[in-house]
Nucleic acid binder design. Structure first.
Length: 607
RNA sequence: GCCGACAUAGCUCAGUUGGUAGAGCAACGCUUUCGUAAAGCGUGGGUCAGCGGUUCGAAUCCGCUUGUCGGCUCCA
């Protein structure tokens, strides 16, 4: 039975201490921050003053750790009164531990919710007032810690230090940056090997690698970082997804709209984006003394369409949708592959409705999202975040608090009624309202948000839009911002990695490849006629009639992960039958020998 | 933006302590006319990311810029 991360906690946390012990021996001036257990391993934050670590230092640390492990040091628990602990941190010259202890004394265990409780030497469930903290000692290294730990360093199992990076003290970019050393750890070397093997395989699925190998998208230094260029093959993916979204949108009575890619700065001043996201706006100067902004969002434009007419309560809900590119000047360090780009295509929708329609509208969107992801076999690979406001600081948001209360409550109800098992995330809301975010993981385990449903009581008010209710007086509608696949970039990243480039037939950039056996005129003509027939059936077909061996041409098709290929030679011409070669993962494959027209018919059936 | 690493042919990568650049694949040409994952021979291709500096001499050392990668922070 596979062990859970919980079972590995003592092992991994002990290794964090062993690593700290090793680092303390190598760099005696080291000041320690926190060193918690994470998925598959652990890390420790360290301040080495002027010394900077690089990956080249990892083997040295690993060797020292091996020494510590060999010494069979016992992990011994002890307790101190909080004031004794503060004195200890001072005498040991550990300013970060001192800060934690002082905060612990002042705030009690509320701090344990901010910082991994293991590193505080108290149980998270402890009384709010903390008077005692626990320590663990191995060899000559003592650390504030809740535990539990292994008995001895000898039980440390198999580990590997994987990376080193900068990390802000207590996760705040205004604080000094420490150095974080990451490791992975498992009870046995077999499990570690297995993990490393899986990691290497995941790297093979990385969308950046496959994007190049399968010729789907490129970047250009001249165009700029974070601005993806889709090749003809990649554009097939975009178009196929757009069509799928259009189909599902039609089914649920969405109304397509279309807007230009910029708007006056004034528009974003009213929406609140100009102030809140000033650094991320691309500004465009007009010759005529006006300043424009490349749209970072679409809602203000869509709101203007709503505002163009007097609306009645009978008109609602109005569900505007659009697939369009938007632009954000992301910080250089955040840009990477298709995960975060500076121009990205969203499937953006804004539903204008009455308060009494919110639940039904949100529920409809949940159904669309579910249907879309189920179709691709991705439903279930996700978790849902009920992103609510940070109660301690309302100045980060627009609108009024009683509307926020209402909105948060309704989203929670929708989540419950649809069994989304949403996790409540404090402080994760958008500036105008709470949201339900659907989170997925990329091949390397990094999380990314795709689908989203966001309630907004604030923006309608800022723009002063209204509808006439049944009593003839004006009321302010609610906006539900929604995306099904989020951004096409992220979504394409996800499906490339999910399918490892072996797209289902309906998404495959090239569905069928016809390979000529040789260069005989009759063979070439047959291949070309067959391609015409396939095109007539709307099959994405390509011809390989190059002067290469059949083996090589098959290999080329396989490397491009083309679902079906057919070799055409004298035999096929004589018999009037083809033997399709199907990509190995395809289910319901067509592979027996049959007439080409029949093959096309069968192919259409599996689409 | 911050910490760290990196940038050599279209792609993947060699290139010793500083002495004017190589391979495989791809491309192109010729030969071959082939039966389901690489036929043979040949040819072309590089301002060593860009700019500046040190040096008799820089792919190699230093600085800046651009870009990429691993994290941190942020993400309407």
């Amino acid at each position: 039975m596979p062990k859970t991360d919980k079972d590995h906690e003592a092992l991994r946390h002990s290794l964090a201490h062993i690593m700290a012990t090793a680092i303390k021996h190598l760099w005696p001036e080291a000041k320690f921050g926190v060193g918690p257990v994470i998925e598959d391993g652990f890390y420790y934050d360290i301040d080495l003053g002027k010394t900077t670590l690089s990956e080249d230092d990892l083997p040295k640390i690993e060797a020292k750790m091996a020494e510590v492990i060999k010494q069979d040091q016992q992990f011994e628990r002890s307790e101190m009164l909080i004031d004794e602990a503060i004195a200890w941190a001072k005498s040991e010259n550990q300013p970060y531990k001192l800060e934690l202890l002082n905060d612990l004394k002042r705030q009690g265990t509320t701090l344990a919710r901010e910082i991994d409780a293991t590193d505080l030497g108290v149980a998270a469930s402890a009384q709010s007032k903390v008077d005692k903290v626990s320590f663990y000692k191995n060899g000559d290294f003592t650390d504030l810690c809740r535990g539990p730990h292994l008995k001895s360093t000898k039980e440390a199992g198999a580990f590997k230090l994987t990376k080193v990076s900068g990390a802000y003290w207590r996760g705040n970019e205004k604080n000094p940056q420490m150095q974080r050393v990451y490791g992975v750890a498992f009870p046995t070397s077999e499990e570690l090997e297995e993990y490393l093997k899986n990691f290497a395989e995941a790297k093979e699925r990385d969308h950046r690698k496959l994007g190049q190998e399968l010729d789907l998208f490129v970047f250009s230094d001249l165009v700029g970082a974070g601005l993806p260029l889709y090749t003809p093959r990649g554009t097939v993916l975009i178009d196929a997804l757009k069509q799928a979204l259009k189909d599902i949108g039609d089914k649920y009575d969405m109304l397509p709209v279309s807007i230009p890619h910029l708007g006056k700065l004034e528009l974003y001043k009213i929406s609140g984006h100009a102030e809140k996201f000033e650094d991320e706006l691309f500004k465009v100067k007009s010759h005529y003394n006006q300043e424009f902004v490349l749209k970072p969002v679409n809602c203000p434009h869509h709101i203007q369409i709503y505002a163009s007419q007097a609306r009645s309560y009978r008109d609602l809900p109005l569900r505007y949708v659009e697939q369009t590119m938007q632009y954000r000047d992301e910080k250089p360090g955040q840009i990477g592959g298709l995960q975060r780009t500076r121009g990205f295509t969203v499937d953006d929708g804004h539903t204008f409705c009455r308060v009494d329609q919110i639940k039904e509208e949100a529920a409809t969107i949940v159904n669309m999202i579910k249907e879309f992801y189920e179709q691709l076999g991705l439903w279930g690979d996700h978790w849902v975040s009920l992103s609510v406001r940070d109660k301690s600081d309302f100045s980060k948001y627009i609108g009024n608090e009683s509307d926020w209360d209402k909105a948060e409550k309704m989203l929670a109800e929708v989540s419950d009624e649809h069994q989304l098992k949403a996790k409540r995330m404090e402080g994760e809301a958008a500036l105008y309202g709470p949201k339900l975010d659907f989170m997925f993981k990329d091949a390397l385990g990094r999380e990314t948000q795709l689908a989203t449903i966001q309630l907004d009581f604030a923006m309608p008010e800022r723009f002063g839009i209204s509808y006439v209710n049944s009593e003839g007086s004006n009321e302010t509608p609610v906006i539900i911002h929604r995306a099904i696949l989020g951004s096409f970039e992220r979504f394409i990243m996800l499906i490339i990695e999910h399918f490892g480039g072996r797209f289902p037939l309906w998404l495959a950039p090239e569905q069928l490849r016809l390979i000529s056996l040789n260069q005989e005129p009759e063979v070439l003509k047959t291949v070309s006629d067959m391609a015409k027939m396939a095109k007539g059936q709307s099959i994405r077909v390509a011809i390989d009639d190059t002067n290469e061996s059949v083996g090589k041409k098959i290999r080329k098709a396989e490397l491009l992960k083309v679902p079906y290929s057919i070799v055409v030679g004298d035999q096929e011409i004589k018999e009037g039958k083809v033997k399709p070669r199907a990509r190995s993962d395809l289910s319901g494959t067509v592979s027996e020998s049959l007439g080409f027209e029949d093959f096309l018919k069968e192919l259409k059936k599996t689409l």
